[in-house]
Nucleic acid binder design. Structure first.
Lengths: 349, 349
DNA sequence: TGTCTCAGCTAAAGCGCTTGAGTGCGAAGA
DNA sequence: TCTTCGCACTCAAGCGCTTTAGCTGAGACA
């Protein structure tokens, strides 16, 4: 074998045309299932294409107005919160499943913040790189929907609430408020009255939804000592907040963590401070993963199917790319997996 | 505001040419820092381009032979092992840092297995989608280097050992063997003689390197009872293997886990079986993350800078894309962070 | 027999960019 | 003064595909 074979040449439609004895246009018609060629020609062309291992050049396609066959995905979170997070990989994995089936590529980028993220969208649009984007972590007062509207870039917002001001955007969301209500309901039934919610990043829309839902539920039941504290999702802040609230004069009897990482960190802190889980304090993680079964006691957690979430979002985006109308679809409410970290309030408490 | 504004039109070089009163070619020369235009023309063109918010269409660029300004990254692992893994997100994050600086896009795909991964490379190549790829999880007897050679696709292998048979590929690797030797050295000094290595996927090249290194070290020191067991990296298998080896008649006094997830799962099992860590058994995780500080006792771990790893790999790839020679670069050996899970063997043992 | 139609195909332009082959012109050299 | 550079720039072709308009020949119909 020669040390450095020249790279193989990519076959083009011209090659197919020559081999099949027809014009390039005929090839184009044949391969795109467009009328204008007979069935037998179409078959012949298809066979030659297959035989040559031809694949359309996305560049050429994009240039002649067909779109880039690519969708974009930007992750804008501080680097250190990216560390141990099962959600995004699973989400992306679900997204991929759908996209791969349609031969759509996924252009991935991590950005520092939303401002950077917007710049990325602008660049992608100007460079003709993507046909649409998947937007995650919608914020309160988010600049992205407006921008995407302006650019005319099809998009689906993952995890946002329905938004009438942007009829062009699809939304895939989970009913956080409903889930929170159910959760509080369950804790209330177990006798919990003092509940602290260790929430995620303060400007994420779903953080706010959860906080509001908790407050509403507390109000409805006349629970006075209910509080939400926002964090950056990191184990460090989760631990710090846990320490603070458990060291208060009247510590809560139940802790709701907005992700698994903080919940695990929180349990460790609780143990260190001499709190027994769930006897002294119940713990629920809003996100289930292997992590929740790696600590003792096993953590009760709200479980959602992130892979399916990704699939749904990607499906909505392809629908949009096909010219379909923007839609708002709700994925199932996360289900509470009761393990060993939740229980009735101890009578003495 | 009209409900549906038509999407803004992307400015092209023709627009710039018209506004600047020069030909398209002059614009091209000016914007690409090529000789052929005077400095004042260049400036004028640049200004107009800026003012119009022009960005080169990657499609057109790619079509005229400039490459797609995109690199590819395929992750081929069983979906369930993707769950809680800090390594890849960090790696990608480092990769992005470098790529973003050069306006290179990252096309990301998850595949089922290596065969699928190869298909993805072929497709990307045929579709003109990427200029190069980053290959992770090199295997023993890996089909990918040959394929990439054949396609003439620049690539850097992340985590592979130097490979003379593929002079076209760059390699970025860590000295697993050296790290393992140092680790065994340390454990030996603490009195450990029975060591079990709960390894990762059996056909990954670095798994084999570690296993071989462990065996070599054991041989050199005359340690008889040393063993490596391969797993799929999941907490479940990590736990299962831990249970099996600790229930043996003469259980090991030290456990080396090939990732943090399994180590954490293993510690839980050890506790359950009544083993105290590190008094009865020492535990080391080959991968550091927040996880290692979420369990008691805190886990000693081999720490590498995955973000930097990603940066290095991406830098090598860009060098390759610039026409540089393939290189083999070694990143620093992972450093052992000693926490609370490792200690001297108890005299009685 | 001549005309009309229409299925089945070809020719050619165009997408936005790069690039090699000119072209015009002022300055330097004979 | 005339030639010769060489700089600054323009022309036009080409990358691989789509798409519109146009062409051809065979059958339908009068």
């Amino acid at each position: 074998m020669p040390a450095k074979r020249p790279a193989a040449r990519r076959p083009t439609m011209k090659d197919i045309a020559r081999r099949a004895g027809v014009s390039e246009s005929a090839v184009s018609f044949a391969l795109n299932d467009r009328p204008g060629v007979s069935e037998i020609t179409r078959d012949r062309v298809r066979r030659v294409a297959e035989q040559l291992g031809w694949r359309p050049s996305t560049a050429a396609r994009a240039l002649s107005g067909e779109g880039a066959a690519t969708v974009g995905f930007v992750l804008a979170r501080p680097a250190h919160t990216l560390g141990v997070d099962s959600f995004f990989l699973q989400l992306v994995s679900g997204i991929q499943e759908v996209l791969a089936g349609r031969h759509l590529g996924l252009l991935f980028q991590v950005a520092r913040d939303v401002k950077d993220e917007c710049a990325v969208y602008r660049r992608w649009w100007a460079e003709h790189r993507v046909d649409g984007v998947l937007v995650v972590d919608p914020r309160t007062d988010d600049p992205r929907p407006d921008l995407l509207d302006e650019l005319g870039l099809p998009a689906v917002v993952i995890g946002g609430a329905p938004d009438e001001r942007h009829p062009g955007l699809s939304t895939v969301w989970a009913d956080d408020a409903g889930a929170m209500a159910a959760l509080v309901d369950g804790l209330h039934a177990l006798g919990h009255r003092r509940i602290v919610h260790i929430a995620g990043l303060p400007d994420l829309a779903h953080t706010e939804r959860r906080i509001r839902a908790l407050r509403a539920e507390a109000g409805r039941r006349g629970l006075g000592e209910v509080e939400s504290v926002t964090t950056d999702y990191s184990d460090a802040e989760g631990a710090a907040v846990t320490r603070r609230v458990l060291e208060a004069p009247t510590p809560p009897t139940a802790l709701i963590y907005d992700n698994d990482v903080m919940a695990v960190a929180g349990v460790a802190v609780a143990a260190e401070l001499g709190f027994s889980v769930p006897a002294d304090v119940s713990v629920v993680a809003w996100e289930d993963s292997a992590l929740c079964r790696m600590v003792k006691p096993w953590l009760s957690a709200l479980s959602r199917d992130s892979v399916e979430f990704g699939r749904t979002a990607a499906t909505e985006l392809t629908a949009l790319l096909d010219g379909g109308p923007a839609r708002t679809v709700r994925v199932p409410v996360p289900r509470l997996i009761e393990r060993d970290s939740t229980g009735a309030v101890r009578p003495s408490a």
